[in-house]
Design a protein around this nucleic acid. Sequence first.
DNA 1: CCGGGCTGGGTAACCAGTTTCTAACAAAGC
DNA 2: GCTTTGTTAGAAACTGGTTACCCAGCCCGG
Lengths: 373, 373
Amino acid sequence: MAATLGGFEMSLTGDRRAGQPADEPTGGSRPGRRRSARPDRPSATIGRVAEAAGVSRATVSRVMNGSPTVAADLAARVRAAAEALNYEPSLVARSLALGRTSTVSLIVPDLSNPMFQDVLRGLSHAAATRGHRLLVAESNENVAEEAILAVEARRRSDGLVLASPRVPEAELRALSDRLAPLVLVNRDLPGSNVPSLSVDYAAGIAAIVAHLRSLGHRRIVYLSGPAASTSNRERQAALRATCAAEPVCALTELPCGATFDDGHAAARAVLRSGATAVVAFNDMVAFGALSGLHELGIGVPRDLSVTGFDDIPFARYTTPPLTTASIPRNELGRQAWDRLWALLGGGPAGHDVHFQPRLLVRDSTGPVPAGRA
Amino acid sequence: MAATLGGFEMSLTGDRRAGQPADEPTGGSRPGRRRSARPDRPSATIGRVAEAAGVSRATVSRVMNGSPTVAADLAARVRAAAEALNYEPSLVARSLALGRTSTVSLIVPDLSNPMFQDVLRGLSHAAATRGHRLLVAESNENVAEEAILAVEARRRSDGLVLASPRVPEAELRALSDRLAPLVLVNRDLPGSNVPSLSVDYAAGIAAIVAHLRSLGHRRIVYLSGPAASTSNRERQAALRATCAAEPVCALTELPCGATFDDGHAAARAVLRSGATAVVAFNDMVAFGALSGLHELGIGVPRDLSVTGFDDIPFARYTTPPLTTASIPRNELGRQAWDRLWALLGGGPAGHDVHFQPRLLVRDSTGPVPAGRA
DNA sequence: CCGGGCTGGGTAACCAGTTTCTAACAAAGC
DNA sequence: GCTTTGTTAGAAACTGGTTACCCAGCCCGG
C-alpha cells in the first residue's frame, strides 16, 4: 500500500567547527590565573560592568533589577556600560543567590503519547506567563528510572509535576517530601498534602459501557494498559465493577500496553475472545486495534465495535472516527501550573480537581451484529 | 456525528495546603540572620556535612565526586554523614562553580505539531544518555518572541537547538554568536559556522509533483504554510520551479498555515481553485483539508487528490491514508544532540546533514477524474 | 546654626559548591 | 640519620550574583 521512492540517504555538505576557532592554543589569553572550567567566551560579569561604570556591584545589580533607589544619571551610566560590554547577568549565579531557578520540571512516562504532549503544552504555556521555564524528562514507562529522574529533575528546578507516575504508592509517599513542591497529574496520593489533578475514569468507563450496552453488546474485551499505570488500574477496576453489576455482561481482559503497536498486535487475540466490543485502554491502543482489525478484514463497527479513551486530537480523524471519552488534557497542564505556582508562593495549593470525562460517540461503535448478541 | 453525555464539570475534593504548615509564624526558627530568600527546608549543605564528618568542605566535595585521592575510611565517614543529613549537593551551586549546567534548550514554533514532538523526543533521549536535561520552550509561531525566548533559554543552559526558527536570516546571523553553541534544525545559515540539519524539501516536492503528474494531474493548488517558515519557502519555491519546468502545469497558491484548522478552513477555496490535486504544506494541513473536503461531500482521491509532507505518525491512519513525503524526525533530534555535544566538548561539530525525504504513496492520491484532466 | 530624617549607594556577607596551592606526614633512597 | 618523593587533606580563592546594614550628604524645621 505504500510505495517508496528514494531512501533516507543523507548528503554531507561542509564541515563545521566550533564557535571559537583556536585563538588560544595553549596558554591563557589573560596572564593571571584562569582556574574556571568554563571554556572561554569571557562574557562580562557584574564586576566588570561595575568597574566600567565606576560604581559598586551592588549598584549594577540594583539597576539590572530595576530598583528605583538609583539616581537616574547613575542608572543611565550603568546601562550604557552594560550595553557596551554586552553584559548579560548569569542566571545561574542569580539562581544561587536567590535560592530559586524559575524553572519547573515535568516527568512523563511517554512523550509520544498525545495525552502527555498536551499536558506538556498546557503546563509550558501557563508557566511561561509567570516567567518560568520547563524542564522535560521522559521515564519511558520505566518505574525504577522514574523515581531517580524525578529526584534529579526536582533538584534542578523549583518544583515538579509528575504526570501519570508509575511509581508504587509507598515509594511515592516516601519520596513526596523530597520532591515538594510537587503536583500530581492523573494520580492521587490519599491522605498526603500533595495536590492532585485527576480524572474520574470510573465514570468514563461507566459511560462507555452504558453506551455499548445500549447498542446491545454483552461480550466485551478490555485491552489493558501498562500494569504500573494507575489509570489502567482504575479503568480496569471500573470495567470489572460495571460488568459485574450487569448480570449478562461477559468481560475478557487482554494484557496489552499503551501504544499503537500494542493495540495492533492484539487484533488477533481480540477476535479469538469472541467479544463484540473492544474497550481499549486508550486511544492509541484503539487506533492500533482498528488498524490491525482492518488488516484482518474485520469491519468496524459492522463486525466489531471499538472504543478508546482520552480523545487525543486525531481520534476524530481515524477510520472510522473513534468513539472515546474525552478528558481536558491541556487543562490538566494548566491547572497543574496553578497548583505549583501557589505552592511556590508558599500558599495553599487550592482544591484538588477530579475532572469528569465526556463521552464522544463517533463511528467506531455500532449495534451488535445480528445473531451475535 | 458526536453525541455528548456530560460535560467537563469538575468535582472539588478537599483543600490541600503547602508542604510546610505554619510552624514559623513570624520570627525565624534559627535566631541568627536569615537573609536567604529560600522559603525553608534547611536542606543540608556541603558545609554542614563537612562539619558532621569533621573534615573540610573540599574533602566532602572530593568524596561526592568520586575523587580517588581520599582515604577509604575518611570517604566512608563522609558518606555516612551525607547519608545521615540527607545531603544532596546543590546543582545550582555546582553549575556556578563548574560553569556548566548540563542542560540544553530546545525552541520549537509549535509543540502541538508532531514534527517537533519527534525532534523533542529524539533530542531528549540523546541528551539523557550524556546526563543532560532538556529545557523546552514554544514560540507559538511568533517571530518577535522567538528571538527573546532563544536568548533567554540559552542563558539558562549550555547550548541551544532551534527547530525551524522563523527569525529572519539577518537577525539569526546577528544572534548566532550570543546563542552559540547553537544547532539549527530545518534551517541553515549559509556561510556561518552554525551546524545545521536540514531536509531537501525541493527533492521531496519534486517527487510529489512527479507522482501527481504520473497520475495525470495538471492543475495543482498549494496550501502554503506560515510566511515566516523557511520550510514553507523552500517547498513553495520548489513547487514553482517544478511547475514552471513542466509546460502544462498550472499552479494556484492559497495562503493557509501549519495547523489542522488552517487546512480545514481552506477546503472551499481549494474547490474554487479548480485544481485536481492539493499539495499541502504539511500533514496537519492535509488532514484538515481532507476533513473539510469530506464535509463538503468531496471524495478523496476520487474527486481530488491530496498530499502532505512530514509523514507524522497518524498520516497512515487517516481516511484515506495520506500520500506524503517522510522525513526522519527523531533522527533530526538525535543528530542535533550529536552536533551540540561535539560543540560542548569544544570540538568540531561534524558534517552538516541534508536528509532526503522519502515519498510514501498511500491512498489519498489517485488518477485525475475523467474529463477533468 | 544645628540636629534629625530621608535617601542614594558602597561594603561586605552571604548563596553552595569546586579547585589550586600548600603543608604535613609517611615511606623510600642514599 | 637525613633528604627526597609521594600522598592526603585543609585553607582559601574562586564561580557571579543579591542584599542587609551602614554611612555620607542633603534638606528641612526648630
